[in-house]
């Protein structure tokens, strides 16, 4: 009840935080997809390179988020800034996106690949017309996992100067205000679930009906 009252009384402020949250996530997602999908495509035919890149990615994945933020802010030029927050989120997306791109591109049925080659499609055309469309569900699943993760990790960016939904939880903690904590926790969770749902719709938009519902 108190939480609801807090929410109603502070709608503007909370919407502002939500907006900041969304902007941060959006920047990180766009960058992460552009960079990591390209890296995944580049390493698709090089098993040794893939193993190295995925090793680094899983190492980064196991660095706790508070620690990663901590390390990034001490780097000159980054500091307590949005760059640090975005970079941290992008780094966490490295493993799920690259791994799924790599696995999905290499997972295309050998018979399909052979037929594509046998019909005289160039390697480039095979990549864009066959491999990527077939890999889309799995790649989307990777992006989906990373974005949902980002929403949670972004709340911790309040400790390095971000003003997003995490502020509610952090301030609630400092002031022992359970209403603020609950509003913050519920909104962040709803945010994550909402994005998860959005991605299930995105699949319908991007994936051919011929393979829909097979992965993810």
């Amino acid at each position: 009840m108190r939480s609801l009252r807090y929410f109603v009384n502070n709608t503007d402020r909370i919407l502002g935080y939500a907006g900041e949250h969304a902007v941060l996530i959006l920047m990180a997602v766009v960058m992460a997809v552009l960079v990591w999908v390209s890296v995944g495509i580049l390493i698709r035919n090089n098993r040794r390179m893939a193993r190295g890149v995925l090793g680094i990615a899983s190492l980064i994945m196991s660095v706790p988020s508070v620690a990663l933020y901590g390390i990034l802010v001490t780097i000159p030029g980054l500091g307590l800034s949005r760059q640090s927050a975005v970079l941290a989120l992008v780094l966490y997306a490295m493993l799920p996106i690259i791994r799924n791109v790599y696995v999905a591109l290499n997972g295309v049925d050998a018979a399909i690949m052979e037929n594509a080659r046998g019909m005289g499609m160039s390697a480039r055309r095979i990549l864009f017309r066959v491999q990527l469309p077939l890999a889309t569900p799995v790649i989307l699943a990777g992006v989906r996992v990373s974005v949902v993760m980002m929403v949670g990790i972004a709340t911790l960016a309040v400790f390095i100067g971000e003003r997003n939904l995490g502020v509610l939880i952090q301030q609630g903690l400092v002031r022992t205000r359970s209403d603020m904590i609950i509003v913050g926790a519920v909104l962040v969770s709803a945010f994550a679930i909402g994005i998860d749902y959005l991605f299930s719709k995105l699949e319908h938009l991007l994936v051919s009906p011929g393979i829909r519902g097979e992965a993810a």
């Binding site: 949902v148 949670g152 911790l156 939880i169 952090q170 903690l173 962040v188 994550a192 998860d196």
Partner: peptide, 17 residues
């Protein structure tokens, strides 16, 4: 799977009150 989306900060904070 959905519950995993609840941020860690929220889980730590929620038991405070």
């Amino acid at each position: 799977n959905t519950a995993q989306g609840v941020p860690s900060l929220a889980v730590v904070a929620i038991f405070l009150p």
